[in-house]
Write a protein that binds this DNA or RNA. Structure first.
Length: 122
DNA sequence: TAGGCCATCTGGTCCT
DNA sequence: AGGACCAGATGGCCTA
């Protein structure tokens, strides 16, 4: 690669600023490091979410959605004191909020929580 | 082979 | 000015 290459980097005032190739490489390295730290946070979060089967690797989007669902499940456990299937007893968390969280997707799912089902099997 | 997921690069914007 | 954060583009890997 040509280390003398320059890339433009415009500011909010619209003025183009020359960015040296070395600066670009440094920015790339920082971004890589930042992405790795985000991934390590995702890995930490994954370890806290029970899956079926056990040790199934969750994607990032699955991790976020299931984390939200798991928090709701734990809240239901606290509210009802029912450690088995608490979510069927609560109003606010009556359906699975697991993998399909599309905004425009109709809620066509039986009123059972993902984690109630998971813990039933175990 | 198509689709999903991911890492990396890149440029724009915001913040200190 | 420099760094952090973010989103889009791109290409590679894996699985059904």
């Amino acid at each position: 690669m040509n280390r003398n290459r320059r890339t433009t980097h415009s500011t909010e005032s619209g003025r183009d600023v020359q960015m040296s190739f070395d600066q670009r490489l440094q920015a790339n390295a920082r971004e890589r490091y930042r992405t790795h730290s985000v991934n390590s946070a995702f890995n930490n979060l994954r370890q806290l979410i029970p899956t079926e089967p056990r040790n199934r690797k969750l994607s990032k989007i699955e991790t976020l959605r299931l984390a939200k669902s798991y928090i709701s499940h734990l809240i239901a456990v606290l509210v009802t004191g029912n450690g088995q299937r608490p979510c069927v007893d609560t109003i606010g968390h009556q359906r699975s909020e697991g993998l399909s969280e599309q905004p425009d997707e109709p809620p066509a799912r039986p009123p059972i929580c993902t984690f109630c089902v998971t813990f039933d099997k175990s």
